[in-house]
Write a protein that binds this DNA or RNA. Structure first.
Length: 467
DNA sequence: TTTTGAGTTGTTCGA
DNA sequence: GTCGAACAACTCAAA
């Protein structure tokens, strides 16, 4: 009975973890390991900080079950091979992920381990269903959400598996590195203590979040989810990102009725993004529609910088960008508004916006973000038509009528700014020279100008016979 | 094989 | 204030 290495990546949970359940069922000693390779060190600042928190929390919950999380730095393959040698492990188990680089890495790991006589087994559980399990009769994968959604419901979502009752430790533990020495939060500078006020870290916190959502907000989810000042959403994307909770656990916990159904649909969107990324990996890096490759997006500019610094003078846009900088998250509706503003009103490349999201979001997920940005920009699957330009004023009037959300995050708009608005001045770089007493900036572009600019750009592109 | 209905999230304008 | 149409044309999925 040689030990098994459990290579944890984004499945940092005991519950609803098919890999862990399968490993426990073997009755063999288990050695959990987390490897900080380029997939970790290459994360954006906020996500890297948050990953460190997730790892720390998971290490504690393994401790409580008599196991340890062994930490190692370096490229995954040699690190795992060395650890297997060191511990006499007979194999490695892990939960599958679907980014192209990750798939390449994991395929090589699997092949190499097996060629050296070690077991290598991967498991599902990161998504509701595997990206290849749903397909239309007419082709290999879905390109439109609604048929995907119908097919998902028809197929059904596997039940979550319970946390294993018994986990067997090895006779001796290999050495582990020190998480603090990895300095995963280093790039956050002043932002880390601010983010820490908002983050809800670890499996227990994720379960509590789900329970809180199910105890109230879910019933009004369909009506309230678009209003960013309301506590109407689950906030679980942060935890799903690190696998602190499993999507199948969430799916099966939600009630029937319109609130639950609308919420499950959002979970299905997460799966749809993974489905698209799996079948068309260029979703992450290039215009998904090839005919959009030549669209005249602007690159870096003063207006792009003003957008990042939440100084566009458009209150709903700035509020969203400040919410993201301060809390590591942004309300879904506002994500669309800020993305539309950047890509359409400012004709700036969606990758510039996506890169900023990657740096700021604690719920950063490449599939969901690439799909979302390309959807807004018009270059993506099932994309918004070019004439669909969000008017930030109209959106604010519709979804933040009282201005509560805008005042919540913009100190200059409130005589007595609250803690969320002030937090931005604590978190943002000193080099931005921010002053809470300064007056709120003028608009860098009015909604009318922005709309005209966007429509003209798209019209020109179409007239040039490319769009 | 061909046909047909449908497609996350909007805005504006004019009746 | 409310409502429907226009804003394009195309691709996708399923019958």
């Amino acid at each position: 009975m040689t030990p098994l290495l459990l290579w944890f990546r984004r499945d940092l949970r005991l519950d609803d973890n098919p890999m862990l359940a399968a490993a426990a069922a073997t009755g063999r000693p288990l050695i959990p390991v987390f490897v900080a390779d380029a997939a970790v060190t290459g994360l954006g600042a906020a996500a890297r900080w948050r990953m460190g928190q997730a790892v720390q929390s998971f290490a504690r919950s393994l401790d409580a079950r008599g196991l340890r999380l062994i930490l190692r730095r370096g490229p995954a393959l040699p690190t795992l091979l060395a650890l297997a040698q060191e511990t006499g492990a007979g194999g490695v188990f892990w939960t599958r992920l679907y980014e192209p680089q990750t798939r390449d890495r994991d395929a090589l790991v699997k092949e190499t381990l097996r060629s050296q006589g070690l077991e290598a087994q991967s498991f599902d559980g990161h998504t509701l269903v595997e990206p290849w399990q749903l397909s239309p009769a007419s082709g290999p994968f879905y390109k439109v959400f609604t048929p995907f959604w119908k097919a998902l419901q028809a197929r059904g979502v596997p039940s979550p598996v319970e946390a294993p009752a018994r986990l067997i430790p090895p006779a001796t533990w290999p050495g582990s590195e020190d998480l603090d020495a990895w300095r995963l939060g280093a790039a956050m500078n002043r932002g880390a203590p601010v983010l820490a006020r908002y983050a809800e870290i670890g499996e227990a916190a994720a379960q509590a979040r789900l329970a809180r959502f199910l105890a109230g907000p879910v019933d009004r989810y369909a009506e309230d989810r678009d209003h960013p000042a309301l506590p109407a959403t689950s906030g679980l994307s942060e935890n799903l990102t690190y696998g602190e909770i499993g999507p199948r656990r969430i799916w099966h916990a939600t009630p029937p009725g319109p609130g639950g159904a609308t919420f499950r649909k959002e979970l299905a969107w997460r799966d749809f993004a993974h489905h698209l990324m799996f079948h068309t990996p260029h979703l992450l890096t290039e215009a998904w529609r090839p005919d959009w490759a030549g669209f005249p997006w602007q690159g870096e500019s003063d207006v792009a910088e003003a957008w990042r610094r939440a100084q566009t003078g458009e209150a709903l846009v700035d509020a969203g960008l400040r919410q993201m900088y301060v809390t590591g998250s942004m309300h879904n509706r506002v994500r669309m508004v800020v993305a539309s503003f950047l890509t359409k009103n400012l004709i700036t490349h969606w990758k510039i916006g996506m890169d900023w999201f990657a740096d700021c979001l604690t719920d950063w997920d490449p599939a969901s973000n690439a799909m979302g940005w390309q959807w807004v920009a018009g270059s993506g699957p099932d994309a918004a038509p070019y004439f669909r330009v969000f008017n930030p004023e109209t959106q604010a009037e519709k979804f933040d009528k009282t201005g509560a959300y805008r005042r919540m995050f913009i100190a200059e708009l409130s005589p007595e700014p609250g803690p969320d608005a002030l937090a931005w001045f604590d978190a943002a770089p000193r080099s931005w020279h921010l002053d809470p007493r300064a007056s709120y900036p003028q608009r860098i572009v009015t909604p009318a100008e922005g709309r005209a600019r966007a429509l003209a750009a798209y019209e020109g592109f179409r007239a040039a016979g490319q769009g």
